[in-house]
Design a binder for these strands. Structure first.
Length: 376
DNA sequence: CTCGTCC
DNA sequence: TCCTCTGACTCAAGACGAG
DNA sequence: TGAGTCAGAGGAC
């Protein structure tokens, strides 16, 4: 809701805070991604892909391809899963459910916001085989992403949702996809605050006035006026004292304090108790899981993995313009990754996750504070 | 690069 | 008058590889 | 779903 409006305000009033960089610029950087959003996109934007068992596997294919693409570019991704939505979001969710239920069956509308459990487990299994860490957020994923960035464990949040900014993510990148020539748009929160002459608290107030997901907005108070009045008076309370309440009625059940608290003191996973660790993808495990268990096209999986391996063995540079001649793309050698039997298929049930490659987000050790160097 | 396919 | 906000509308949203 | 238009109405100057 406030997403578009905030993007407009930033582009108009703080254009300096927005820059574009080629993806290669983010080599060796740790980037947090909202897993639920990504998966939801794969499931909606993609034509439904059903395997032979009638299961929709769009999310697996999408996650597989996109994650490998990030890894090939030297990026260290960490996926953050949504937890329980805050109570303040319930009205919004209810509205969405109602809208969906109006034209679809009730079962689908009940999908609410949280991913179905088996779906999420599949994604976790896939990430484990890819050697990519994931984090379970207690509440909003964007909030935990922001906390990870603030802690220095993560360089930036990659999302299309502007929420990460009021949550305090110092850097936000958009348009992170597998498109060729991908230019990533990076938004700097400190630059925004400086250009707008606002504190983070005032910025949160601005976001609330623009119409965030958690509470209604004030009638006839749009982006221009909201920004001007806030810069002039400092807080929403002060703004309210300087506008005509008749012409600008407040929304019903307007929980200003609650919404502020939600952004400024959100419920997040403690970054100090999270250890992020990346391993090489496990090609054998990926073929077993994706092709044999989930029935993705085996040659596609293998082909993609082979491409990844070739990129790995190549010298670190070699990206700039060096287009590999047609010839360079070797054809498949299917037997490559699973010399051992196809017969050893894992149990059908999601069962215990692959034990050997267990992903580690241990809680306990602050771990090496391998903070991504802020230099550059 | 555009377009058709992925299961 | 011009500026600003609202609301109703439409469309496309992923990633790949063959040609 | 959300993001990009385009119509039009209420305020501001």
């Amino acid at each position: 809701m406030g997403i578009a409006r905030l993007a407009d305000v930033i582009k108009e009033e703080a254009a300096e805070a927005v820059n574009s960089f080629p993806l290669r610029q983010y080599r060796d950087r740790v980037i947090a991604l909202d897993a639920s959003i990504a998966i939801y996109q794969f499931r909606t934007a993609m034509p439904k892909l059903f395997n032979r068992n009638g299961e929709n596997i769009s999310h697996l294919q999408g996650l597989f391809y996109r994650t490998l693409h990030l890894l090939e570019n030297g990026i260290k991704p960490v996926f953050v899963f949504d937890g329980r939505p805050p109570d303040l979001k319930q009205p919004l969710l209810a509205r969405r459910a109602e809208a969906a239920g109006a034209r679809r069956d009730a079962a689908e509308s009940r999908r609410a916001e949280n991913l179905p459990r088996p779906l999420k487990q599949d994604c976790e299994t896939l990430l484990s085989y890819l050697g990519v860490p994931y984090v379970q957020a207690p509440a909003e994923a964007e909030a935990t992403c922001a906390a990870l960035v603030k802690s220095g464990k993560v360089w930036c949040t990659a999302t299309e949702d502007m929420d990460a900014l009021p949550f305090g993510s110092l850097r936000l990148i958009r348009h992170l996809s597998s498109k060729k020539n991908c230019e990533v748009e990076e938004i700097s929160l400190p630059d925004i605050l400086q250009k707008l002459g606002m504190t983070q608290e005032q910025f949160v107030d601005l976001y609330i006035l623009l119409g965030c997901d958690y509470c209604g907005k004030i009638w006839r108070l749009g982006p221009k006026k909201a920004l001007k009045l806030l810069q002039q008076h400092g807080t929403i309370e002060q703004v309210l004292q300087n506008i005509d309440p008749q012409k600008h009625p407040l929304p019903a059940n307007w929980d200003l304090e609650g919404t502020r608290r939600l952004f400024l003191q959100p419920e997040v996973a403690d970054p100090g108790r999270i250890t992020l660790e990346w391993r090489d993808p496990d090609p054998e495990g990926l073929v077993r899981f994706l092709a044999h268990e989930k029935h993705m096209n085996e040659s596609r999986v293998c082909q993609r993995l082979q491409r990844w391996q070739e990129a790995q063995s190549k010298p670190r540079e070699a990206q700039p313009k060096q287009r590999v001649p047609r010839e360079g793309r070797r054809q498949r050698k299917l037997g490559e990754f699973f010399p051992a039997s196809k017969r050893a298929r894992p149990p059908e049930v999601p069962g215990p996750r692959p034990s050997r490659k267990r992903q580690k987000l241990q809680v306990g050790t602050p771990g090496e504070a391998g903070s991504p160097d802020p230099g550059k």
